Simulated scan of single mutants.
Amino acid sequence: MEKDTMQQPDELEIDLWEIFLVLLHNLALIISVGIMVALGAFLVTQLFGVPQYESTTKIYILNKQENNAVTYSDIQLGTQLTKDYAELIQSRFVLEEVVQGMGLDLSYEEIAKKVSVTTPTDTRILAITVTDTDPVTAMQMANAIREAAAVHIMNVMDIQAVNVSETANMPMKKASPSVLKNTLIGGMAGIFLMIIVILIRFLMDDTVKTPEDVEKYLQLSTLAVIPLNEGEPDGKKKKKKVKRG
């Protein structure tokens, strides 16, 4: 038992070394497949990827008491209500009003997928982001949602005003898809999949190729090795041809 226990670490080390050698032997193939997949991802993203643009507008909402003085309770209450404001901004009432006002051919579900509301950490500012294939439409939709949401929030929450922290910007660069990101992901995926294929083929291959494999897997010692010289018949044929010439 002790002898078998002592041999297990050696066998594990030999297996890992063999795997390393197999991967090293197929390194050129692994890199080639990675480059090919990365090139494919680059071409697909460049040719068939639909550009998406993001435009963001920000609002600031703060309840005030009747004396118009901002207290700590007002700030704390405003922080707790940011989630309520976000729900009101993305409500059906606001989004459908924007669709009708801009004359968009979109359903509520379709425009809801384009809108996201976030709150920067430790702030009471709400950022309304709209994603669209047209940068101008994204900017116009963001501003329209902000205006409709401000009126809806004042009516529902009984707030006097919603302050505009930042108007929607005109996006000059596409937000997605990222050609560089997709190319890198494609290359890494190709390399990873090729390594898996090579390892599976290596682990599934149970053929005996060397005398060392006989001793390792069959636990038998080889008495003799017969070399195979496959090029010998061809060599004799060549010599005969030379004698005839």
Rank of each mutant, 00 (worst) to 15 (best):
D15I: 13
D158G: 09
L184M: 13
I75W: 12
I125D: 02
N229I: 11
S32I: 08
L228C: 12
K209G: 02
N163R: 02
L203D: 10
V136A: 14
T222A: 12
M141W: 03
E96I: 03
N155L: 08
T118G: 08
L184S: 06
Q46L: 15
T123K: 09
T57I: 04
D105P: 03
L12H: 12
M188R: 03
A41D: 03
T119A: 07
S73I: 05
Q76K: 10
Y217D: 08
T137V: 09
N143Y: 01
D105R: 06
P135K: 01
Y85D: 05
M188G: 13
M36N: 14
T131F: 12
T119R: 00
L199F: 06
K238F: 10
T210R: 13
V115W: 05
I14G: 00
D105T: 07
I19G: 09
M188Y: 07
P51G: 10
D205C: 04
D122H: 06
Q46M: 14
T133C: 09
E230W: 08
I111Y: 07
A86K: 11
L199K: 02
K239E: 15
E97Q: 14
I19A: 11
I195W: 00
T123G: 04
K181A: 14
A144N: 05
M194W: 02
D105V: 04
L218A: 12
L16H: 04
G190I: 02
L199M: 15
N67C: 05
T5N: 15
L12E: 08
P233F: 05
V98R: 02
T129L: 06
D15M: 13
E109H: 05
Q140F: 01
I35T: 07
L106E: 10
F20E: 02
I200C: 12
Q90I: 01
T137K: 13
E110G: 02
L12K: 15
F192D: 01
G245D: 15
I191N: 01
F42V: 01
S32G: 12
L47Y: 10
K64I: 05
T71R: 06
L12W: 10
V208N: 03
E110R: 09
V117H: 11
N143C: 03
T5H: 11
N26A: 07
P211Y: 10
V37E: 01
I111H: 12
D4M: 10
S221Y: 08
V70T: 07
A149H: 01
D132E: 14
K58H: 10
E18C: 10
L106D: 02
G49W: 07
P233R: 12
V208I: 15
K237F: 13
M139C: 02
V136I: 14
K237C: 07
